[in-house]
Amino acid sequence: MKRHGAGGETSDVAKVGSLAAATGLTVRTLHYYDEIGLLSPSARTAAGHRLYAADDVQRLYRIVTLRQLGFALDEISATLDDPRWDLLATINRHIGRIDHRLGVEHRLRNRLAAISDTLTRDRHDIDIHEYLHILEDMSMLSTTIQRRIPTIVYRDIAAAHEFLTTVFGFEPGRVAQAPDGTVYHAEVTAGDGVIWLHAVSERFRLQSPLALGASTEQMSIVVEDVDAHYRRAEEHGAEIVYPPTDQPYGSREYGARDPEGRLWSFLSPLT
């Protein structure tokens, strides 16, 4: 709709109902975003109805994109107000995700077309691997579960982030700080995925191995050269649990602990 300004000019605005319909969000969700200060409309009608301008809709695009990337609402709020936010980079990243999905869909279509041609010629000896490839592509297109994000708990997130990037060579990601400088969330990238570093929490019964005196899980990371990675970790003073060893299940791996006692294994496939 058009809203008339004081000087008679008009500007494009959207009511909350039409914005909800266009985005697939509920009106209740948009009201909630307004209540917590995440997305407040630029104007209201005389009757108090919310009116969203172009800048508001752009902000909503950023919110929806970050939600799809796995960010929590408090993290999104901090990111949106970061002056270093790069809209172009975000759009390009969004394009990259769409291109990846289109590539998988194209590959899946070609596989199905090839099987269709085979069956048309009255041949029914479809290789089992073809079905496995099809199922794999279908799982990649599933919208039920879109992404996995391992989350591991640390007493000192800042120190853990420094250790994982310096000693284990993970790519550093964002580090979120409270106003008093305390780090309450951090991220590292390990190969094809991100790992979240979470603070201990009595509410959710999340504890560091340092407090428990034991580790209840183990992270396994595939590296290009396990022996080179081992030497790097050893040179940086990591606690080595066992040196590179050829395992009967087809990998060469070694184990090391981080400063809070969590066990990590690094491995390379045996060729």
Rank of each mutant, 00 (worst) to 15 (best):
T10H: 12
S220C: 07
R231S: 12
E202M: 06
A113S: 15
A238E: 01
D246V: 11
A6H: 14
T120A: 15
H4G: 09
Y254S: 02
I91Q: 11
T189Q: 12
H106F: 06
R50D: 08
I221V: 15
R97V: 15
R97E: 14
D137K: 00
D74W: 07
V223N: 05
W85K: 10
A233S: 10
R121T: 14
M219P: 02
P172M: 08
A211C: 07
H236F: 14
D180R: 00
T245S: 11
G250K: 11
A47G: 15
R62Q: 15
L66V: 05
V188N: 03
A21S: 15
R121L: 13
R97G: 13
V223Y: 06
R257S: 06
F170T: 05
I134M: 10
P179H: 08
A214R: 15
D81N: 14
Y52E: 02
A14K: 06
A214E: 12
L119H: 02
E9K: 13
L88M: 11
R205D: 13
L267S: 09
G70I: 02
D225Q: 04
T29W: 03
A199V: 08
S42K: 07
L30I: 12
V222H: 07
A178W: 09
R203F: 13
Y131N: 12
Q146G: 14
H229N: 12
G261Q: 01
H236I: 03
T65C: 10
V183W: 02
R84Y: 04
E260Q: 07
D74S: 12
G103F: 10
G96F: 09
T166D: 14
S42N: 07
V183G: 01
Q247H: 10
G255Q: 02
L164V: 01
Q218C: 09
T65A: 11
A89P: 02
V153T: 15
W85C: 12
A89I: 06
P41A: 03
A199H: 08
F266N: 00
A186W: 00
G250F: 01
A43L: 11
T120D: 15
R257F: 09
R232K: 10
S11D: 04
